[in-house]
Amino acid sequence: MPESSENLTVSVVVPVYNGAEYIGDCIEALLHQDFKSDQFEIIVVNNRSTDNTQEIIDRYPVRSLYESKRGPAAARNAGIRASTAKFIAFTDADCIPHDDWLSKLIFSMTDSVCGAGGQILSYYEDDAVSTFIDQIVFRQRYNILQKNPPHITTANACYLRTSLEKIGLFDESFPFAAGEDRDIGERLAMAGGTFVFAEAAIIRHKHPQTLEGFYHQRFRHGSGQFYTVLKKYSKISLPQMLKEINSDRLINLGFQVVFCNGSKQERFLRLLQLIDSAAYTNGLIWRYFMYLCGK
């Protein structure tokens, strides 16, 4: 790691909350990047962990920060503010970057773009649930090249630091890990920024491998996405909330699961699609009721 910030090209910011199970593997992969060691730094931001995450971070030659405000948006902002580098790259504690991840990501950052996102693939290559998550949940190519406005999933992202500063960094009203990366991407795009899909910049994410784990992941995503809805309406009425729920899709998927006469693989795919939609919707509704209760 560089002893001086003068030559820094990029700061890699990793937010972590109770990530003792994962953070060591992530840091070790970052330390083995083929990028010039005096031109990048690793900033790990401990976001109120209550396990031994900090003890593990302290074993490595990285910059360690503590952020007391809840949420990865606040943790990432702490890392951005601590950086003087031209570029800010992001990954998550449960991700394992390929050795050339950072060099491929930075190489894609031409003068015409303010952000780049690479592929997010499963760490468990032969697992059926993880493969589905690759195809449906972490659709980086689609989010960058086809969404309007586009956004980049921050498990594998890089931005110009000055571009982030111009729009006020991540919105810290997002207290959970979902929605905040979409929000900042859309704000950058609306400010005239453009993104590139860096296909060769690959990280491996430790996806859930069980149906229960997949359900909880998508429930958390739906719960976090509520804050995107809240930002749109400021104060959400029940009719407005109902507009955000695709009940027709849920009903259709339910019928497909019950009456599907296809192969075992096809029936399993329909089940995964139903779990995906139902868990996300349940998370959204649960967070709405917490909002009504003032929590």
Rank of each mutant, 00 (worst) to 15 (best):
L105T: 00
L105K: 01
I106N: 02
I106S: 05
I106A: 04
S108C: 13
M109Q: 09
M109K: 10
T110Q: 14
S112T: 13
G115F: 08
A116P: 12
A116K: 07
G117T: 08
G117W: 06
I120A: 04
Y124H: 07
D127Y: 05
A128I: 11
V129D: 01
T131Q: 10
T131F: 11
T131R: 14
T131M: 07
F132R: 13
I133E: 01
V137R: 02
V137I: 10
F138Y: 14
F138D: 08
F138T: 09
R139Q: 08
Y142T: 11
N143A: 05
I144W: 10
I144Y: 03
L145V: 08
K147G: 01
K147V: 00
N148D: 05
P149G: 05
P150W: 02
I152D: 02
I152Y: 08
T153L: 05
T154S: 12
T154W: 04
A155N: 11
N156G: 06
A157D: 03
Y159P: 00
Y159K: 00
L160I: 12
R161E: 06
T162A: 14
L164V: 09
E165I: 04
L169G: 02
L169E: 07
L169M: 12
F170E: 02
F170A: 00
D171Y: 04
S173I: 08
F174G: 02
A178F: 10
G179P: 05
G179E: 10
G179T: 13
D181G: 01
R182N: 10
I184E: 10
I184F: 07
I184W: 12
G185K: 08
E186K: 07
L188V: 02
A189G: 08
M190S: 07
M190C: 09
M190W: 11
A191M: 06
G192L: 14
G192M: 14
G193D: 15
F195N: 05
V196M: 06
F197A: 05
F197P: 09
A198T: 07
A198N: 03
A200P: 03
A200Y: 15
A200E: 14
A201E: 03
A201C: 07
K206V: 15
H207R: 15
P208W: 13
Q209P: 10
Q209L: 11
Q209V: 12
L211S: 02
G213L: 08
F214L: 06
F214A: 10
Y215V: 13
H216I: 08
R218L: 15
R218T: 06
F219P: 00
R220N: 14
G224P: 08
G224Q: 13
Y227G: 00
Y227I: 03
T228H: 11
